[in-house]
Amino acid sequence: MVTPVLIGIDWGSTSLRAFLIGADGSVLREHAAAKGASTLHGHPAFVAALDEVAGAWRRAQPPLPLLACGMVGSQHGWLEVPYVRAPAGATELAGGLAQPGDTALRIVPGVLCNDGLLPPDLMRGEETQIVGALAQHPQLADSCVILPGTHSKWTHVAQGRIGRFATHMTGELYAVLRQHSVLGRLMPPEVTPDMDAFLAGVTAARDHGELGLPHQLFAVRSLGVTARLRPGALPDYLSGLLIGHELRAGLAWRAGHGLRELPLALVGAAPLCERYQLALAHCGQAADLVLDNTAPAGLLALARAARLLS
Rank of each mutant, 00 (worst) to 15 (best):
226 T>C: 15
130 I>G: 08
273 C>N: 14
3 T>S: 14
233 A>P: 03
289 L>N: 00
179 Q>T: 04
164 R>F: 03
121 D>Y: 07
38 S>H: 15
24 D>R: 06
232 G>A: 15
173 L>H: 11
2 V>E: 15
11 W>H: 05
189 P>C: 03
244 G>Y: 10
300 L>M: 04
134 L>I: 00
208 H>G: 01
39 T>L: 15
293 N>M: 06
219 A>G: 03
41 H>Q: 12
41 H>C: 04
58 R>D: 05
10 D>P: 07
240 G>N: 07
232 G>D: 14
219 A>H: 08
39 T>Y: 06
128 T>G: 03
162 I>V: 12
154 W>G: 07
114 N>S: 10
302 L>Q: 06
54 A>Q: 07
49 A>D: 13
292 D>P: 11
139 Q>I: 01
137 H>M: 01
12 G>M: 11
16 L>V: 06
180 H>V: 01
51 D>W: 05
123 M>P: 09
309 L>G: 06
255 A>R: 15
106 R>T: 03
65 P>D: 03
64 L>A: 07
173 L>D: 06
246 E>Q: 03
79 L>W: 03
219 A>D: 07
28 L>G: 06
263 P>M: 08
23 A>C: 10
134 L>R: 00
263 P>C: 04
235 P>L: 12
273 C>P: 01
111 V>E: 15
100 P>D: 01
84 V>P: 13
256 G>P: 12
244 G>P: 02
24 D>Q: 09
198 F>R: 12
109 P>G: 02
304 R>Y: 15
114 N>I: 00
118 L>S: 11
129 Q>Y: 03
245 H>N: 15
15 S>Y: 04
233 A>Q: 15
136 Q>K: 06
45 A>T: 02
180 H>T: 04
29 R>S: 14
120 P>V: 06
178 R>P: 13
269 A>N: 13
36 G>Q: 11
85 R>D: 08
73 G>C: 02
6 L>F: 08
307 R>F: 02
60 A>S: 08
42 G>A: 05
83 Y>T: 05
259 L>W: 08
310 S>Q: 14
10 D>A: 07
64 L>Y: 14
260 R>P: 04
269 A>T: 05
181 S>Q: 10
228 R>Y: 02
213 L>E: 09
